[in-house]
Structures are given as C-alpha cells and as structure tokens.
Computed example of a mutant assay.
Amino acid sequence: MKPEQILPYAKPWILIDDMQYEESAGWATSKKLVSSSDHYVRGHFPEQSIYPGVLLAEGMVQTIEAVLLHEKICMKLVEATSRFLRPAVPGDEVHFVVKICDRQADRWVCEGTGFVDEQQMIHSTMTFAK
C-alpha cells in the first residue's frame, strides 16, 4: 500500500515510504529511508546529522492513520509516549512494526517499535479515539 495514496498529506510531510497491513493479525509495517537530502536532517545537529526523533514517532502514527483511513474509521491520535533508544542517521532504513493491542469501536491502543538492522531504536504506545 502506498502511503501517498491514502494519507491526506503531501511530500515531504508523508514520513513513511511504504507500508503493509495485515488486518487479520492486527499489525502494520512500514519503512522510512533516512536520506541526507531530507530537509529535516540538514541542520539538525550539523556536526552529526540525525533524523529528529519526533519524526520517527510520527512515522508510526502515520502508519496507523493509513490503516484507519483504509478501513474508513474516523479516529485521531489522543495520546502517545515514546522511548528513544538510538538515533537514526542518513543511510538508515527504519522499519516500523505497529500492533493494534486493544481494538474497540471508539478507541484503539497501539504499540510500535522502530528497528534499523534488527536493532531497536524507538518504542511507542499510541492511543487513537473518536
């Protein structure tokens, strides 16, 4: 599934490059290739460019937003907590895995993890509600 065909944003604000959704299993995966040409990277710690952590968390949020829009469910992010374990740098391909842990008619609670080369770099818990 192509995020730009579902999400109501335009590049450069779509922060995932590709995604898959397995409805029966209750999880979605997406990826983001961090490039030195991403304008968020330039100037963010100029001595060592890194991809801003808040944008990593937003990539996981956009993954679930795409699932919600695909299923025609109207919910918005109401709460999120994230733990950053290591930075993403240009050249990294970040793989997000987001699991829907509690799925109710008016609320979803999701847990997401971001990996680079199988090394965990971010973990988030997100609540979406009507």
Rank of each mutant, 00 (worst) to 15 (best):
H70F: 12
Y21A: 09
R86N: 11
D106Y: 05
S24A: 04
C74H: 13
M1H: 11
H39R: 09
V116E: 01
Y40L: 11
A57F: 14
I100N: 14
S124G: 06
P8R: 02
Y21E: 09
M1Y: 06
D117T: 10
G112A: 13
L56H: 10
E58L: 07
P46V: 14
E58W: 11
L69M: 06
Q20G: 08
K31D: 13
I6T: 05
W108P: 00
R103Y: 08
T63L: 10
L55N: 12
E23K: 14
L15P: 00
Q62N: 01
V98R: 03
G114P: 03
W108R: 00
M121F: 07
G91F: 01
R103V: 13
V97R: 13
S24T: 11
L33K: 05
Y51K: 10
Q62L: 07
K130S: 15
I100L: 14
S30T: 03
Q119T: 15
E22G: 08
Q119H: 09
A25H: 13
H44R: 04
Q5M: 15
M60C: 08
P8K: 02
G91S: 03
V34A: 09
K76A: 10
I73Q: 12
C74V: 09
V116L: 07
K32M: 04
Y9A: 04
P12D: 01
H39F: 08
A129R: 07
P52S: 03
V67M: 07
C110F: 03
Q62P: 02
Q48M: 08
V54K: 06
V41C: 11
V41G: 03
K130R: 15
I73A: 02
P52K: 06
